[in-house]
Amino acid sequence: MVPDHIITSEEEVKKLLSHYSITTEQLPKIFHDDPAVKAIGAEVDDVIRIVRISHTAGRAESYRLVTRRPKK
């Protein structure tokens, strides 16, 4: 049910950011205490690749930046 979450290497992140010409700030976010983040042991400021199996696209990749959940 839960799609694959993988920590991306530093080079990959660099490539990703230059490909979309963005900074990490512009990536979608995921909180550090998200169960999926905890499961793969990702740290704050890591970028996670999420691979979903899609009915229409076959394989859909997306990326999220791990951020600290703000206290209320």
Binding site: Y20, I22, L27, P28, T56, Y63
Partner: peptide
């Protein structure tokens, strides 16, 4: 800021 990497994932 990016919301989806591909519109509607596909």
């Amino acid at each position: 800021r990016i919301i989806q990497f591909q519109y509607g994932e596909d």
